[in-house]
Each structure stands twice: as structure tokens, then as C-alpha cells.
Nucleic acid binder design. Structure first.
Length: 923
RNA sequence: GCGCCUAUAGCUCAGUUGGUUAGAGCGCUACCUUGACAUGGUAGAGGUCCCCUGUUCGAGUCAGGGUAGGCGCACCA
């Protein structure tokens, strides 16, 4: 084996081995355990959030697979309507063309080509992460069977009256030229203005001043509203206003939506361009005058001089014209929430169009109940509140998109515009009894991407066919996803799955944090702080990283800043840390926190951890490969250390499993790290050396230790495998033949998880080894603080031993000598006169190192003082507690006894140290 | 406005039902090429647990109030 672990040499071959041998498919026996992959964008690439979530999903799947479950990680990709269409449009734009130049069919063909070209990208990247998803069952949301499910659902919902078409205000993206859902609009506060305009009454008697943040919409005003109880305006209600610029006569109406305190208490009403005004318009039966076209230019409904102007140009002109006419009273700076499309960043227009909607109320009820009853559990539980809050105020879902890429809406219109819904034109003709000569035209629109992903839990299992998979893997076990798509996806899956299968889609929802950079900033291209998980695995040079971060930026001027920042952050680029280190890092970061700050130095730490494991393996192999490990018989004599490490190992297994069951992967990872590094490597491997290297130990003892070395390591690899699949499989293949594991499976991933063996717990061995450790640490302590060279062998005197101390000393003397680098160990008898010594305590036993020639008197006094000070504080604290009648009277006896024992121990130690101080001071 | 979250070592984070001297990794200091590993070892320094009040024998932990930061939803003429 190489002296250092080199992940790049093993990972890809290892993965190919797994995949080519079909190890990712469900075994077909055991309890079903299924995870649905949140389908990533088919043409996208893997980002840190994916890597994080996929690590967790894979860890769970690998763990359950090794536990003997019938595991399915159902994977696939999403067609991502808007995102994908935008990418291909941008490619066309770069060639100076638009999608309209190609036409719909050619354009869609072009997207399919792009999907063929880049569609495998993200799944290849998932493979680099070690994801053991069942690629044989990989699906794409536009596959035939999924499209069939989409049509089936649409038609059923329509037939039940739960899908309807209506002309309503929607969020319109004037660049994408499509409606988008509420969730796809971000409302952020921006600086704007408030314009005050004086509208004259038609009778010329007076005027009303209205305030607006969007003066251009006045072209579509169809009323002015005041509060019905507002005394200032009682006389105006029912009169009319002659709208400036258009000359339209519009009524003054009363509606208690108006807040008399805000602005002037008079509101201009533009029902076709504002959601609140729309509602008011409906209440008062106002005309709805649309003044914009699809691209948000002023249309023919406005005076000629404004027609064709872009909305912002129109605003400027209108403000100027109103000012000139003396209608504009005042302009004030004003902060307002501006709705922008989350994809394009352009300002969204409320726009009156025909769209398809899902009436969600009846679907929401059972979906709410499923969480309320505990049938579906959120982890952490708090996220259920977010879910309820949205579900209890849920709005009908606008599912039509004016895009070309996606599932075409299965609705047809005849020449009179009458709608017919069915899975195909032929079906419709039968269903509605339409003659062949009736001309039908299919709706141009496609469905919201989330409509198909809402069907993911059952459509991927073959629905509407009644398949074995549906029966076995629905509901799935746990959904691992981010809180940002609880509404988009999670809630809608619950609604649709309940509706169409009567089952819940998943039993638990594990909500992960969002991966941010080490400063807690969201990773984004414009901030230039994005990291590609593959770069963390393979490493990347500084120049290449800068290149990657600065190409294709929306704002090229940011490139300089990003370059500087990247140089500062990664002056030498990024090292190749390997997949296992990255995965272990993600596991270790997966606490309950909602933000995960990605810290490269931690990945480095886990890369070092991999190297530690690698080298521990080298050591174990050196000592077992050409020796008898006792697997073929022969007496095994286990030392206290052997029994101790087994006991600790069993505890580790139990803790690990408990933490995984709680979805506390951070604690699970720490448990493994602690055991492996701080117990197995730091102590056990050291302790094994005297046994395997000494002529004084018997063959049986050597066998016992070799057996323990190889088998603890072999089992440890199995426990670690879900988190670190590559290194564990590589090592396992090397060590398994030497171990007691007789399995014939070709990879650790198909072997059984280690089962907790309570019989291996050994309290007395653990105590004995704790005694050894404090003995050794006591001496290292003196060495360290007294500046004694580590290589210097020390003579040690022991005093005040009890029977247990004597027994333990006898059991472990050879180890103590080696670990603490001792020259000799001598027990003082009561009658002996002790020389001047530096002292450490193990319980009541004193470990003494003669000072002569080694230790400076003043230094030792200083060291003792430090120890004594601590003990004095401790004695004072505990005495204070025990003298407090309230404490003694009210605290449980157990706690009081603990305090008493603590006090006694501190007093004992203190008196011994004080004796030492006195003795040394006399020198 | 409603709801949620966070605040612990220089940095990134754990800390379970309240109960030893509050922990880990990284970083820092000193020493060490010993034979698995310098991607290593040994020792060490480093904390007003955001603030206030309360409950309690006892609070990092519970309650109330505040401060700072973050997120979601709704509203904003």
C-alpha cells in the first residue's frame, strides 16, 4: 500500500465495479426502504447542495442496504421547463437567432438535442459522489410513461372540476412571455417613488389627490376608491372623475379595503394591472382595461401617443405630461416591494390572461391531515409549521406556462373556442361525441414543471398501471430535501399522491440546511463564491478556478472582484480531497442547523482522517498479513486492551446507529471519528505493538491481538462504509481475506452491517484501560511541562497502591513501559524514604518521577501550584454546595452523593499535592 | 403585521430529560523525524455560553423581556 491515501486512484474503478455488477438495484427481499431523489434539472450540473443531500441519501441507502432492507433509491431528472428553455434560447441568441425563427417544433427538437448532449452530465457527477442510485430505473419527467401519468392526472382533475380555465390576473414575465406562479416571484424592497396626482371631478367642482408608485397604470384606471366611512370624502362617493390623459369618466366608489390613514386616503383603481384592484374591480363590477401587451409595452387601449412605449418609457413620459398639465402634485422617494421573476430578474406584471388552474383546497385538506396526524413527519419537526402556514392559506395553482418545453396541456378547442379535455384528440372525439369534421386545435401551453414532479412518488413507480413497485415502494421511507422547495414540491407531492393513490408519498421528510460559503453567504455565480463539488474531489488550480468562476457572468465587471476574492480565498487553488473526505464533511455538517457553512479546512481535516485510516490499515496489514490471525483456529488470548477496544467498538456501533436513526449525521460522523482516531489509532494500535513485537508474549496472546486488529478494522470499515464508500471498500477488499468475515459478496456494500454485540461490552476492561491511560497521560504531562525529551527513558516510583492498582500494574506493566517510555517501575514500600519527585495521581496512587538531574525545583513547584489552585477552587465550590442547606435538602440524593465524592476526591488530591509542595519546598 | 430560526474558543460548529472543571475540528504556542501515518505525535494556551429579569438547591440548557442577525408568508395606493 502507498504511504499516503490517494483517492483518485481508486474511486472511479471502484464505482464502475459496483455499477457494472448491478449492486444498486433492490435486492428483492427484506423490508422495503425507498428514497426518492429530488430530480435535478436534466441539463444542470451538480452543486454543493446536491452533493450534500445526495451524500445523506446515499448514506441512508447504503446503511439500509447493509442492514438487509430491500432498498431502492429512485433517481431521475426533471425537464425544468423555464430553466432549460432559457438555456437553449440563450444559445440561439448567441447565434443571432430567436426561438421564433426556428418555430416550435424545431425549437423543441433543439432542446431534445441539448438534453442528449448535456443530460448525462449531472448523473455522471452523481456517480463521482458515489451515489448508489438504481440507474436502471432512472426516469426523466418527459419520458412517455411519465407524460402519460401527467395527462391522466390532468384529465381526471378536470373531469372532477378541480382543474379549470379562467381569465385572471397572473404574474406575467414579460421577457419569458409566460405566466409564473406566486412562488416564482420574489418581492424585495427597492427604492422607488410615490407620485401624487390630482384627479379632477367631472363636474369641475373639486379634485381628489391619489398616490401611486406606478403612474403609467393610470391609463387603465377605471375608478377611484375611498373608505366608506372617511368623512373627508362622503360627498364625493358616487360622483365621477375625468381621468387625465385619457379623458375617461370613472366613478368614485367606496370600499373598506382603502386605508384612510395611508397616503391621501384616495386610491386609483386599475383592475387589470394590480391584484388588489382586480379584487375590488370584481366587487364593484368595474371594467378591466388592459393597457399592456405581452412584452409590457403600452397597447392600443391607451391614447395613441403612448402606444408602443415600453412600460418604463411610458412612465417617464406620463410623469412629464402630468407635470406639464399641473396634475402632478408631488413626487416623494418611497421604498416599495418590487416583484421580480426569480429566473429573469425582470419586474413581473400582473397581467390579465387565460390560464389553467388547479383548485387546491380539497386536495390540501387530506394533505394537511396527513402531517397533523403524524402519518408524515417533518425532521426537524418545526418545518411542519411552515408547511401548515402555507397550506392553510393556499391559493389555486396556476399550472399553465406559455413555453414550448414541457408537457403540452391535454386540452383542445373547437372553432368557437369551446374547450375539450382528454388524453388525446381521438379520445376527445369519442368522449365528447365530436364528429371527425369538427376542427380541433390543441392548447398551445405547457404545464408548470412542478405539475409533473408532484406526481414523482407514484409516476416513477409505474402509475397509472398497478405495478409491483407501487405496492412495494409507496409510500417511500424518507424524503431528503431543502426547505426552499417545501411549497413548490413537497406539499404538492403530498396532495397529488394522496389524491391519486390514497397513500402518503413518504413517511418522513428530512429537511436539510442550505449550503453556504464559509462566511455564511449564499453561493451564487454573481457573488463568485460557487464551488463545484467535483473540484473539491479532484482539486483545481487557481487559474482554472478563476476562469470557471468568471466566465458567463451576467455582469462582467464583477469579474475583477471575483478574481481577487478567489485569489485570497484559495491562493493555491483547491487540493484534491477525494469523495470520501467531502462526504464525511457533509455528514459531519448535517446537524439541525438550517445553514451549513462549507469550510474547506474541515474537508482537509477529513482528508487527513482518510489518510489516518489508510495508514492504520497499513499497520494492521504489516502485523497480520504474514501471521496467524487466529481465523483458522488456534487459541486466542485476549489482553485487557483487546477486550477494551472491542467494548469501545460495540459502543461506537450502537451510538452510530442511534444517531443515524435520529438523522443526526453530524453526531454519527463524530462518533466514528472519535473512535477511529482517538481510541483505535491513538491507543489501541500503540498498545498492540508490545504484544505483537515482544518475545515475551505467547502465540495465543499474539493471535488474540492480531485477531482484534484485523477484525475491529474490518468491522469498522463496514460501519463507516455508508459515509465513506470508496476508501472502505478498497481497504475491505485488502483486509477481508485475513479477517473472520467469511462472506463471499464482491463488495463491502453488499455485506451485512455490523450488528451490535452486547456481550462484547466489558466494563472492567474499560476501567482498567482508563487507568492505564491516566497513568501514561500523567507521565506525559510531567514530561511535557517539564521539558523532558520524549526520547528520555524515565524511572518511575509508585506509592500508595491498593490491590486493584497492584493487579492492574501487573497486567499492564509492559504496556506502560512502552507507552510512557519508562526505564523502570518500582513500588515504594511504606518504610521507604522517597527521593524528591515530580508527582502525578491516578486515583490515590502516586506516580513519582525522581527529579534528580531532570526536573527543576522551581518549575515543579510552579506546576504543583497550578494543580493545587485548580483543586482549591474545586474544593471551595463543592464545599459551598454541600454547606448550602437548600441544596442538601432539595437536590436528589444521587446528585448529593456525586458532589460528596467529588469533594472527597479533590481534598485527597489536594492534600497529596500539598505534601509534595512541602517536600519540594524543603529541598 | 404573522410565523420560524440563529447568537457558545480567533474561525466553523456540537452540547440530549436542567446536575463534575462547557466540548470537537481547524487555527495558534512549544517540543519531537520513534519503526502505520509530518495529511503525523506529545504537551499547552484560549470562553462574561449576546444582554436583563425570573423559575429552581442548581440555568449554556427552562420562562418572560430586550439586542443583533437571518429566513418564510402576507401587505404596502
Amino acid at each position: 500500500m502507498d504511504k499516503t491515501f490517494n483517492p483518485s486512484q481508486i474511486e472511479q474503478a471502484c464505482y464502475q465495479h459496483w455499477e457494472s455488477k448491478g449492486m444498486f438495484s433492490p435486492s428483492g427481499h427484506g423490508e422495503p426502504y425507498c428514497i426518492l431523489l429530488p430530480p435535478p434539472n436534466v441539463t444542470g450540473s451538480l452543486h454543493m447542495g446536491h452533493a450534500f443531500q445526495h451524500t445523506i441519501m446515499d448514506a441512508l441507502i447504503r446503511y439500509r442496504r447493509m442492514k438487509g432492507d430491500n432498498t431502492l433509491w429512485q433517481c431521475g431528472t426533471d425537464h425544468a421547463g423555464i430553466a432549460t428553455q432559457m438555456v437553449v434560447e440563450r444559445q440561439l441568441n448567441a447565434q443571432g437567432k430567436t426561438r421564433h425563427d426556428l418555430g416550435r417544433d424545431k425549437f423543441v427538437e433543439r432542446i431534445w438535442e441539448w438534453k442528449e448532449e448535456s443530460g448525462g452530465n449531472i448523473t455522471q457527477q452523481m456517480r463521482r459522489l458515489g451515489a448508489s442510485a438504481d440507474w436502471n430505473r432512472e426516469v426523466f419527467t418527459m419520458d412517455d410513461n411519465l407524460s402519460e401519468a401527467v395527462r391522466e392526472v390532468f384529465v381526471q382533475l378536470y373531469d372532477e372540476g378541480l382543474i379549470y380555465r379562467g381569465k385572471r390576473l397572473v404574474n406575467w414575465d414579460p421577457v419569458l412571455l409566460t405566466a409564473v406562479s406566486d412562488l416564482e416571484v420574489v418581492n424585495d424592497e427597492e427604492d422607488g417613488h410615490m407620485w401624487y396626482m390630482r384627479y379632477p371631478l367631472s363636474d369641475g367642482s373639486a379634485s381628489l389627490t391619489v398616490a401611486t408608485t406606478r403612474p403609467e397604470t393610470m391609463l387603465g384606471d377605471t375608478a377611484v376608491a375611498v373608505h366608506p366611512d372617511d368623512e373627508r370624502y362622503q360627498d364625493f362617493i358616487g360622483k365621477t372623475i375625468t381621468l387625465p390623459l385619457t379623458g375617461r369618466e370613472i366613478p368614485i366608489i367606496a370600499d373598506d379595503y382603502v386605508d384612510p390613514e395611508f397616503g391621501t386616503g384616495c386610491v386609483k383603481i386599475t383592475p387589470a394591472h394590480d391584484f388588489n384592484d382586480y379584487d375590488m374591480g370584481k366587487r364593484h363590477d368595474l371594467p378591466m382595461i388592459n393597457i399592456l401587451d405581452d412584452e409590457a409595452r403600452i397597447n392600443q387601449n391607451a391614447p395613441a401617443e403612448y402606444q408602443g412605449l415600453d412600460r418604463f418609457d411610458a412612465r417617464d413620459k406620463i410623469v412629464k405630461d402630468l407635470e406639464a398639465a399641473g396634475i402632478l402634485v408631488e413626487t416623494k422617494p418611497h421604498k416599495l416591494k418590487v416583484p421580480r421573476g426569480d429566473r429573469t430578474g425582470v419586474i413581473i406584471e400582473p397581467y390579465l390572461t387565460n390560464q389553467w388552474y388547479v383548485a387546491v383546497e380539497s386536495l390540501a385538506k387530506p394533505a394537511i391531515a396527513a402531517v397533523e396526524s403524524g402519518e408524515i413527519k417533518f425532521v426537524p419537526e418545526n418545518w411542519s409549521k411552515t408547511y401548515y402556514q402555507w397550506m392553510n392559506n393556499i391559493q389555486d395553482w396556476c399550472i399553465s406556462r406559455q413555453l414550448w418545453w414541457g408537457h403540452r396541456i391535454p386540452a383542445w378547442f373547437d372553432e368557437d373556442g369551446k374547450e375539450y379535455v382528454g388524453k388525446s384528440e381521438a379520445e376527445i372525439r369519442t368522449k365528447y361525441g365530436l364528429a371527425d369534421n369538427v376542427a380541433l386545435k390543441q392548447d398551445e401551453d405547457v404545464l408548470d414543471t412542478w405539475f409533473s414532479s408532484a406526481l414523482w412518488p407514484f409516476a416513477t413507480m409505474g402509475w397509472p398501471e398497478n405495478t409491483k413497485e407501487l405496492d412495494t415502494f409507496l409510500p417511500s421511507s424518507v424524503l431528503v430535501t431543502g426547505f426552499d422547495i417545501i411549497f413548490f414540491w413537497v406539499a404538492r407531492m403530498i396532495m397529488m399522491t394522496k389524491k391519486f393513490t390514497g397513500k402518503i408519498p413518504f413517511k418522513e421528510i428530512y429537511i436539510t440546511g442550505l449550503v453556504r460559503d464559509e462566511n455564511g453567504d449564499k453561493m451564487s455565480k454573481s457573488k463568485g463564491n460557487v464551488l463545484d463539488p467535483i473540484d473539491v474531489i479532484d482539486g483545481i488550480g487557481l487559474d482554472a478556478l478563476i476562469e470557471k468562476r468568471t466566465t458567463g457572468m451576467m455582469q462582467p465587471k464583477l469579474a475583477a472582484k471575483v478574481t481577487k476574492q478567489t485569489k485570497q480565498q484559495f491562493p493555491n487553488g483547491i487540493d484534491a480531497y477525494g469523495t470520501d473526505a467531502l462526504r464525511f464533511n457533509f455528514a459531519a455538517m448535517a446537524s439541525t442547523s438550517r445553514d451549513i457553512n462549507f469550510d474547506m479546512s474541515r474537508v482537509e481535516g477529513y482528508r487527513n482522517f482518510c489518510n489516518k485510516i489508510w495508514n492504520a490499515t497499513r499497520f494492521v496489514l504489516m502485523n497480520t498479513e504474514d501471521f496467524d490471525t487466529g481465523n483458522k483456529g488456534g487459541e486466542l488470548a485476549f489482553s485487557p486492551f483487546d477486550r477494551w477496544i472491542w467494548s469501545r467498538f460495540e459502543r461506537t456501533v450502537a451510538q452510530f446507529e442511534a444517531h443515524v436513526a435520529d438523522y443526526r449525521f453530524d453526531l454519527a460522523a463524530n462518533t466514528l471519528y472519535e473512535f477511529t482516531w482517538n481510541q483505535f489509532c491513538d491507543w489501541y494500535l500503540e498498545l498492540s505493538k508490545p504484544v505483537v513485537n515482544s518475545d515475551a508474549t505467547s502465540e495465543a496472546q499474539k493471535r488474540g491481538t492480531r485477531y482484534t486488529l484485523i477484525n475491529v478494522l474490518e468491522q469498522l470499515m463496514r460501519v463507516m462504509h455508508p459515509f465513506m464508500p470508496f476508501i472502505t471498500d478498497e481497504i475491505w477488499k485488502k483486509i477481508k481475506p485475513l479477517s473472520a468475515n467469511t462472506t463471499q459478496v464482491p463488495s463491502i456494500m453488499l455485506d451485512r452491517f455490523v450488528s451490535f454485540e452486547a456481550s462484547m461490552l466489558d466494563e472492567s476492561a474499560e476501567q482498567e484501560i482508563e487507568w492505564v491511560k491516566s497513568f501514561v497521560v500523567g507521565i506525559r504531562n510531567i514530561r511535557g511541562e517539564m521539558d523532558i525529551a520524549p526520547s528520555k527513558r524515565l524511572p518511575v516510583l509508585l506509592n500508595n497502591l491498593n490491590d486493584v492498582d497492584r493487579q492492574r500494574l501487573e497486567n499492564t506493566q509492559q504496556y506502560l513501559t512502552m507507552l510512557a517510555k519508562l526505564e523502570s517501575i518500582e513500588i515504594l514500600e511504606k518504610t521507604d524514604e522517597a527521593p524528591a519527585c515530580a508527582t502525578a495521581l491516578v486515583g490515590e496512587m502516586e506516580i513519582m518521577i525522581p527529579m534528580a538531574g531532570l526536573i527543576d525545583k522551581e518549575a515543579e513547584l510552579a506546576r504543583l501550584k497550578k494543580a493545587a489552585d485548580k483543586l482549591v477552587a474545586e474544593v471551595q465550590r463543592t464545599e459551598g454546595k454541600l454547606n448550602n442547606q437548600n441544596f442538601v435538602g432539595k437536590a436528589p440524593a444521587q446528585v448529593i452523593d456525586k458532589e460528596k465524592a467529588k469533594l472527597a476526591d479533590a481534598q485527597m488530591q489536594l492534600s497529596k499535592i500539598q505534601e509534595q509542595q512541602a517536600a519540594i519546598a524543603k529541598l
